[in-house]
C-alpha cells in the first residue's frame, strides 16, 4: 500500500510540474530551451534557499526527474563543495555533481548521431 501511495504521489507531482510547463508554452509561446532553463533555475533557487530537500523527500521522482532536479543538484553540489573545499568548491561543485547527466547526454547523443539519420515529420 505504501509503495502504491509513493508512486501515486510521484505521478501526480511529476504530472503537475510538466503541466505547468505546458501552461507556460500555451500562454506565452516560449521555446523549449527557455522552458528547460526556467525550470532548472527554479530548482537552483529551491535548493539555494534550502527547501528542495523537503519537497524531494515527499515527491521523490516527481521532482527529481523533471529538470528541476538537475538544477537542484547543481546548487547542492556547489553548496557542499564550498563547505569541504572552500573557495575552489565555488567553481567545481555544480558541474561535478551533475557530471553524470551531462556526460551521458553528450555521449549518447554523439553515439546515436553516428548511428541514426533524422526523419521527416509526419
Amino acid at each position: 500500500m505504501d509503495i502504491f501511495l509513493t508512486y501515486l504521489i510521484v505521478f501526480l507531482v511529476g504530472g503537475l510540474v510538466c503541466m505547468i510547463g505546458e501552461v507556460l508554452i500555451i500562454t506565452t509561446n516560449i521555446t523549449s530551451a527557455r522552458i528547460l532553463v526556467t525550470f532548472e533555475m527554479l530548482g537552483v533557487l529551491l535548493q539555494a534557499v534550502g527547501v528542495y530537500e523537503y519537497i524531494s523527500d515527499f515527491a521523490k521522482a516527481g521532482v527529481n526527474v523533471p529538470i528541476i532536479g538537475f538544477g537542484a543538484s547543481l546548487a547542492k553540489g556547489a553548496i557542499g563543495a564550498v563547505k569541504t573545499n572552500g573557495f575552489l568548491g565555488i567553481f567545481t561543485g555544480g558541474l561535478a555533481a551533475t557530471a553524470g547527466g551531462i556526460a551521458a547526454a553528450i555521449f549518447f547523443a554523439f553515439i546515436f548521431a553516428l548511428i541514426f539519420k533524422s526523419h521527416t515529420k509526419k
Binding site: 508554452i25 509561446n29 521555446t31 523549449s32 533524422s118 526523419h119 521527416t120 515529420k121
Partner: peptide, 10 residues
C-alpha cells in the same frame, strides 16, 4: 528547430 526535437507547433 531540428526535426527530432519534441516541440509543439503553435
Amino acid at each position: 528547430f531540428p526535426l527530432e526535437l519534441g516541440n509543439q507547433r503553435p
